[in-house]
Simulated assay, not measured.
Amino acid sequence: MALFGRGKRHGAASGEGCPDHKPCNKLAGIPLHDLDSRLRLVVTPIADLGSDSITAQLGGGLAALLVAMDLPGTGGAHAVPAHFTPRWNSAPPDLLARALGNMERDRVAIEALAGGNGGPALYVVTGQDGLPGAAHVLRLEQVLGQRLPHGALVAMPSNNRFYAVPIHSGDDLGLLDPLVSAVRGLAEQGPVLSQDAFWLHDGQLDPLNATVKNGELRYFPSDAFKQLLPQLRRDNAH
C-alpha cells in the first residue's frame, strides 16, 4: 500500500495555506519520499492532544499519536495535523497503519524481570535508536514472539517504555501488584504516563483502576476483565 497516492507530487510537502503553523512548517521541510519512513506512533495522554491530532484511541486516557520523526538519532518528533494529510492523498487510518508498519523495523530492548523456571513472566520493553517504544504494545505478540489469546497486563510509565505480563493462566495475575508497584515507584522519581495497570486485549488498554485502600492495592476492573477470570481458573484446572 503506497502512502502517497497518484495525485499531484511535490519535492516536499507544501506548507502553503498555514504559513504560521509551526507543525506544518516543520513537515514542509521533509521531502515526501522521506516522510513515509519517518511516520511513527507515540503514546500520549489524551488530555495533551490538540483537536487536529491524528490518533488511535488506546483506552485508559491514552492514545497513539501519529508523528513524523526528526533525523535519525535526534529523538525529536513532530505531530502530524489532520489538516495536513490531504496533500498526501491518504486518509488518517492509512497513515496510522503505515506508522505501525514502519515500527516493525524498529529495534526494541526486551528485559525479563521475572519468568524463570516457566513461572509468570514480566517484561520491560524499551525503544532504541531514538525511536519511541511504548506504542509497540500494539504489536505485543510480535515483540514477545508468543500468542496472547487472553491478552496481557500492561503498565505505561513513559512514551518510550512499557511493562507487560502475558496472561496464559491465573498464576500470571500474581504479578499484578509488582507491576503496579514498579510504575508507582517510577512516579516517585518523576511524571509517568499512568500509574494504573491495564488489561491489554484487542488492541485496547482496559484500566484495572488500581487503588490503595487500607494500605493494600485494590483493583476495580471492568466486567469484561471479570469475565476472563473463570476462563483462567478452568485453564489452571487442566
Score class of each variant (00 low, 15 high):
44 T>P: 05
44 T>G: 03
45 P>W: 08
45 P>E: 12
45 P>C: 08
49 L>G: 04
50 G>P: 04
52 D>C: 03
53 S>M: 00
53 S>I: 04
55 T>P: 04
55 T>N: 01
57 Q>Y: 05
57 Q>W: 01
58 L>Q: 03
58 L>I: 08
58 L>Y: 00
59 G>A: 07
59 G>Y: 02
60 G>W: 04
60 G>F: 00
60 G>D: 05
62 L>H: 08
62 L>E: 08
62 L>T: 01
63 A>L: 05
65 L>R: 10
65 L>M: 04
66 L>N: 02
66 L>H: 06
69 M>L: 14
69 M>I: 00
69 M>H: 06
70 D>P: 07
72 P>K: 00
73 G>P: 02
73 G>Q: 01
73 G>I: 00
75 G>Q: 03
75 G>V: 07
76 G>Q: 08
76 G>A: 07
76 G>P: 02
77 A>V: 09
78 H>F: 06
79 A>Y: 03
79 A>L: 07
80 V>C: 09
81 P>K: 10
81 P>F: 13
81 P>Q: 12
81 P>T: 13
83 H>C: 15
86 P>I: 10
86 P>D: 14
87 R>K: 15
87 R>F: 06
87 R>Q: 15
87 R>P: 05
88 W>Y: 13
88 W>G: 07
89 N>W: 12
90 S>Y: 01
90 S>P: 07
91 A>F: 13
92 P>W: 14
93 P>Q: 11
93 P>I: 09
94 D>A: 13
95 L>P: 13
95 L>E: 12
95 L>F: 07
95 L>M: 15
96 L>S: 01
97 A>R: 11
97 A>K: 12
98 R>M: 08
100 L>C: 00
100 L>F: 03
101 G>Q: 13
102 N>I: 05
102 N>C: 00
104 E>Y: 10
105 R>F: 11
106 D>W: 02
106 D>F: 05
106 D>R: 06
107 R>E: 13
109 A>M: 06
110 I>C: 08
112 A>R: 15
112 A>S: 15
113 L>F: 09
115 G>L: 01
115 G>W: 04
117 N>R: 13
117 N>A: 13
118 G>E: 10
118 G>F: 12
118 G>A: 11
120 P>E: 02
121 A>I: 03
121 A>F: 01
121 A>R: 15
122 L>R: 14
122 L>A: 09
123 Y>V: 09
123 Y>L: 09
124 V>D: 05
124 V>W: 02
125 V>Y: 06
125 V>K: 10
126 T>M: 04
126 T>E: 13
126 T>Y: 06
